[in-house]
Write a protein that binds this DNA or RNA. Structure first.
Length: 280
DNA sequence: CACCAGGGTATAC
DNA sequence: GTATACCATGGT
């Protein structure tokens, strides 16, 4: 395993990897294993060290550094410290959740994943993504555990829409996946948020998921039912406020560069305590 | 049985 | 521009 030494900080990998950002990580024997398109990333945090390895290509520094945004790590943690002193709920959320980072996930897998996420809960989304991998991905064994990679464009485009719908259990969203596959077939490398809105099944919220979790956008956050609950509960913002106006309010309140990470804290924090209405 | 889940589309006004 | 029905699937 490779080692990355953290400067006296502790990342909350449970929330970062198993929360709302990605649906492709699992925790086995205290190691996290993540399916990142053709690769598996294995990681564990012990004391102030991150131990990591990649498969099947070993020691893929480029992948690890990019996915975990290592080059921006301390800058981003600084932003969290600034936010904490500025807002009481962020302060509570950081106190409870510790340090979170926003991953930079590959565009194709992220787009398919969040198209599938619409109007469903996280366990069900996970299950569908896993179906994609098991049925259409490549088998790869790591530590005697069987994984399946996320299928690529060339593979998925061969699958009949009705078969895909039946096997992955994504229901009516299969036509949205098809639209995404056509988009990537005609798209050369660079993807912008405005392009994503041309895909059927992608509206404001899912486009923001992809922008934040894959394209590195920082000045918006996905406004789903949980984010709206957080805004209504903590900041008395009516949930009927227009989507774009809501983002503007967040930019004004938290600062333009902080909306994504602030939103991530509010999302993960309220999801834990919403039922009890008690926010320690 | 009703209602909900990291929503979006089509249609109607 | 805004409101509403509808969309599959599985869990509670």
């Amino acid at each position: 395993m490779n080692t990355f030494v953290l400067d006296n900080i502790n990342l909350n990998l449970d929330t970062i990897l198993l929360g709302g950002q990605s649906f492709s990580w699992c925790k086995i024997n205290n190691f996290y294993y993540g399916i990142v398109e053709d690769n598996i990333i294995k990681i564990r945090q012990l004391g102030n060290k991150l131990y990591w390895q990649t498969f099947p290509e070993k020691d893929n520094y480029k992948l690890f550094y990019s996915y975990f945004q290592i080059d921006n790590l301390y800058k981003n943690l600084n932003l969290i410290d600034n936010l904490r002193s500025k807002d009481d709920y962020i302060r509570k959320a950081v106190k409870y959740l510790g340090y979170l980072i926003i991953l930079k996930q590959p565009i194709f897998q992220t787009t398919i994943s969040f198209i599938i996420s619409s109007n469903r809960n996280i366990p069900l989304i996970r299950q569908s993504i896993q179906n994609f991998c098991v049925y259409y991905g490549e088998k790869i064994i790591v530590d005697d555990i069987i994984f399946y990679t996320f299928p690529n464009l060339d593979k998925l485009i061969q699958i009949d829409e009705h078969i895909l719908r039946y096997q992955t259990k994504i229901g009516y969203r299969s036509q949205y996946v098809k639209s995404a596959l056509e988009f990537f077939t005609n798209q050369n490398v660079f993807v912008q948020k405005s392009d994503l809105l041309s895909i059927k099944g992608i509206g404001n919220k899912i486009a923001d998921c992809i922008a934040v979790f894959s394209l590195g956008e920082r000045h918006v956050t996905p406004l789903d039912v949980w984010a709206k609950r957080a805004l209504e509960t903590y900041y008395s913002i009516n949930h009927k406020i227009k989507y774009e106006d809501c983002q503007k309010w967040l930019q004004n309140y938290f600062g333009r560069e902080n909306v994504a990470i602030a939103g991530q804290y509010l999302f993960e924090y309220i999801r834990i305590f919403y039922k009890t209405k008690n926010f320690p």
